[in-house]
Structures are given as structure tokens and as C-alpha cells.
């Protein structure tokens, strides 16, 4: 990314690929990158479980769209959309023990204080089924990948940005398990 001139819109996949359904955010980003070409106004990031690193990716943006697993008590696979006001509800109080547990709302608050906070923030989420150690989404969440990716595409359309499908891109998203890891392994073997 260009630190001085970031794209106005950033789509950020949050979550851990080693915790089954928690990896849905990064997986959606991977699928979107695989299937679409995005104009320069949009940057997609698989940020994992980045903590304060997040700040680097949100400061100076106009709109930030987070994609993450959300435990809101719904049925696994249920889709959610939250706007900034909802994300900032019930701001945290009390001590923090580990240095590495800033939440989205904390990062947004920090961006506000620092200056350069995004004008608009949206969280697109899905209720997870299984968050235990393991690689690959549950079948329920694999099935939710397509609608969740579509939510992102629609969100971008609302913002006046069109994602161009790659030629021959499938209507439904296949489920390559361990997508990022097997890609990495290929890169190593290619040498």
C-alpha cells in the first residue's frame, strides 16, 4: 500500500485462519481477489488478527469495510451488517491486561483521536459455528462465503464502485480448503 496516498476504500478481512470459522474474513478477501478485478479506489487486505496494526490500514481512508466472524447469538451462517454507531456502542471500560487485545471500536476511537479516521465504517459479518483450532471453514460457513462476498460487492456498488468479474469466473465460489497455505507452499516449490 502507498502510505501517503491510500485508496479511499479498504476492505479488511479479520480473523484467524487457524481457528476454523474465525478465518472467514480472510477467506472472503481471498475469494474476492480471485474472482474480481477492483478499481484503484479499492484495496483488499487479509489482515488476520492484527490488533493495533489495523490502524495502519484504516487511517486516511474514506470508507472501511470489515469482514469478520460475529458472535451475535444468531444461527451459524446468519449474516450481519453493522455501521459505525453500532460498533462504538458500549465503549470499553476497565483495565486491559494483555497489550494485544484492542478491539475494532478501540482502534476506531484511536483513529478519531489521531486524526484521519474513516468517514464511514461498515462491518459485514457472519455467525460462526466452530471456532476451535483447525484449518478450513465448517460446511455451514463455506456455504455462507458466497452470500458474504456478495454483501461486500453490493456494499461497494452502493459506494459507486463496480467489481469486474474475471473472465470465466464461476457464479458460485468453490471451496479450496487451506486456500492461503497451499498457495504459499506452491510459491516455495516453484523455486
Amino acid at each position: 500500500m502507498d502510505l501517503e496516498h491510500p485508496s479511499p476504500i479498504c476492505v479488511i478481512g479479520l480473523g484467524n485462519l487457524l481457528e476454523r470459522d474465525d478465518g472467514v474474513g480472510p477467506r472472503v478477501v481471498q475469494e474476492l481477489e480471485r474472482r474480481f478485478t477492483f478499481p484503484r479506489e479499492v484495496e483488499l487486505v487479509d489482515i488476520g488478527t492484527a490488533g493495533l496494526h489495523l490502524l495502519t490500514w484504516i487511517i486516511g481512508r474514506d470508507v472501511v469495510i470489515f469482514v469478520d466472524a460475529v458472535t451475535a447469538g444468531g444461527t451459524p451462517g446468519a449474516l450481519y451488517r453493522f455501521e459505525r454507531a453500532r460498533l462504538l456502542e458500549g465503549r470499553a471500560a476497565g483495565p486491559r491486561i494483555s497489550q494485544h487485545q484492542p478491539e475494532i471500536r478501540e482502534i476506531l476511537a484511536l483513529a478519531e483521536v489521531a486524526g484521519g479516521a474513516p468517514r464511514e465504517v461498515v462491518l459485514l459479518g457472519v455467525e460462526p459455528e466452530d471456532l476451535r483450532d483447525g484449518i478450513g471453514l465448517t460446511r455451514t460457513l463455506e456455504a455462507a462465503l458466497e452470500p458474504l462476498a456478495q454483501l461486500v460487492v453490493h456494499e461497494l456498488e452502493r459506494l459507486g464502485v463496480r467489481a469486474q468479474p474475471h473472465a470465466g469466473s464461476q457464479a458460485t465460489i468453490p471451496a479450496p480448503r487451506e486456500a492461503s497455505a497451499s498457495r504459499g507452499a506452491t510459491a516455495i516449490r516453484a523455486t
Partner: peptide
């Protein structure tokens, strides 16, 4: 070890 970052609105 920040293993899990699912957002919990509650």
C-alpha cells in the same frame, strides 16, 4: 497469542 478475534457485539 491472539488466537481469536471474532467480534462480540454483546
Amino acid at each position: 497469542a491472539c488466537a481469536c478475534h471474532a467480534y462480540d457485539p454483546r
